[in-house]
């Protein structure tokens, strides 16, 4: 209960700081019944220093990943892309020639997610990356409910191996959930795979179509 109170308190405080009325919908109650899985590709792993290169997101409804409504955006920032990160996401400076600026891309993203709960792997990092931009722009941080799949996975695993060391690497979870690898690492593919893991972990024994 206290927890709920705190949550409301923070949410309200967050709302009060909102500088741009356009994004008030982020604080409204969600009625779509959908979730949004999202993933970002960045220049590095430090939210303070590094920049977002692309955002990929898909909606989940019931047992379906709505790939028909995929969100994908590439962002061009002044920042250099380290060769280390290029190896992971395969985005080079040259690929971003036609990309959008943060000023265009972030509002589109917020529009897409609405007030839906967010699902992700190591979501904290991706949220921090988004917050890094919206905080100075609109005065707020993402108010959406957050669902961390590695946490759900951990909770389910720990029941069977108490005190065990649970490998929480993405590829391991993927393999354990028997989700096929959909190809290269990029924001949308990772979001789809994360979504599949989420469905696998939460659908359980629901065998209705």
């Amino acid at each position: 209960m206290f927890f709920e109170m705190f949550k409301d308190f923070f949410k309200n405080r967050n709302l009060k700081r909102l500088k741009d009325e356009r994004f008030k919908f982020l604080f409204e109650a969600d009625v779509s019944g959908e979730y949004v899985v999202f993933d970002t590709e960045t220049t590095g792993l430090n939210p303070k220093k590094d920049e977002i290169l692309s955002i990929g997101a898909v909606k989940i409804k019931d047992n379906k990943i709505l790939t028909s409504q995929t969100f994908e955006v590439f962002i061009n920032n002044s920042c250099e892309i380290s060769s280390e990160s290029t190896k992971i996401h395969g985005i080079r400076k040259i690929d971003l020639v036609d990309a959008k600026t943060t000023l265009e891309a972030i509002p589109e993203f917020l529009e897409f997610i609405g007030s839906r709960p967010l699902v992700g792997y190591y979501l904290e990092f991706d949220i921090a990356m988004i917050n890094k931009y919206i905080k100075p722009m609109y005065g707020i941080t993402l108010p959406n409910q957050q669902i961390e799949i590695s946490e759900i996975y951990y909770n389910q695993k720990i029941k069977f191996i108490p005190q065990g060391n649970i490998d929480l690497r993405f590829d391991t979870i993927l393999e354990n959930c028997l989700v096929p690898n959909m190809g290269t690492h990029n924001a949308v593919n990772d979001a789809i795979m994360t979504g599949l893991i989420y469905l696998k972990l939460t659908q359980g024994k629901n065998n209705e179509r």
Binding site: N63, K64, I65, L66, T67, S68, I192, G195, L196, L199, K200, Q203, G204, K205, N206, N207, R209
Partner: peptide, 8 residues
């Protein structure tokens, strides 16, 4: 138009 679905 394509979605991905998961069925147990």
């Amino acid at each position: 138009k394509i979605d991905i679905a998961y069925y147990v």
